[in-house]
Amino acid sequence: MSVLEIIVFTVVKIVLILTVMLLMVSYLVYFERRVSAWVQNRLGPNRVGWEGVLQPFADVFKLLLKEDIVPVKANQFIHTLAPVIALFVAFATYAVIPIASPLKIFGYEIPLVVADVNIGVLYVLALTSVGVYAITLAGWSSGSKYSLFGGIRSSAQMISYEISMGFSVAGVLLFAESLRPIAIVQSQGSWMWNAWIQPIGFITFVVSAFAETNRLPFDLPEAEPELVGGYHTEYSSMKFAAFFLAEYANMIIAAGMIVTLYLGGYNLPFFNIESLGLANWLTVIIQIGSFFIKMGVLLFFFLWIRWSLPRFRYDQLMSIGWKVMFPLSLINLIWVAVLIMVFNL
């Protein structure tokens, strides 16, 4: 492939992924509202379009028309920069997550991932850490005590849970012997999911993912009863929407990462699709489907948890992070090491 072709394919992939992501984010918001309604014996938004499917667009239009309010005491530049960082990080992370095996078309072999980098997992961890800045800066630049508290809590929380997250991932990396997401997916094959092999690591990773995405029960940065709206108290209009979208985009990333790292990625469970010898395009479609279904189930789990569990207290959050999650991830690491030594996997 020539450089030009690579650029063209990459741009097309970026556009496709961004579109899909934005749609997913919008509909995630919609499903969040519907699921919460169902849990609470309500109907939820069901007016705009059939069963309310156009609700996300109505919301976006509404937010676009809202007045953008910037507090007098805010730092104008950083106040505007923060949501941009949040959104950028959320969407950029997606570049390394593979959604299917390479597609062979017109004589080209196109990997179905925007950037098939060797250090993909590291890239994700690095970018999510940058995401902390968005929230911290937003909180600090708003010039409001509630925002500031939200920002501070967020950074403390993210730093704490990143450690257990990192150690959980280490277990996966030991098995896959690679930081490349496609390699990790392939190392799991169709049934040897990391979730089965290292369940403790899976649980600590999922819990840390909840904390990293600021989802309930870890949504301390925006704890409404205490902090009004947390770090985005002073945001309105599309700037607020940016944070909102970033939060849901982060959920999708988290779900994608869990699927990639622990649930066998795009592979079908217990069944090697490639052994059927189907046409390449069919295999790819089935794999994409498998990937998105896994992700969908996980996302539903995210929503379900949110509407079932109450928020932790701040001290509980910290003690769970350091006293439970961190030791558990260490135990998981030892468990993996023992497995590798004993079974020579």
Partner: peptide, 9 residues
């Protein structure tokens, strides 16, 4: 807890 909310759904 999750099973409870699932039921009420």
């Amino acid at each position: 807890g999750l099973s409870l909310t699932l039921k009420s759904m």
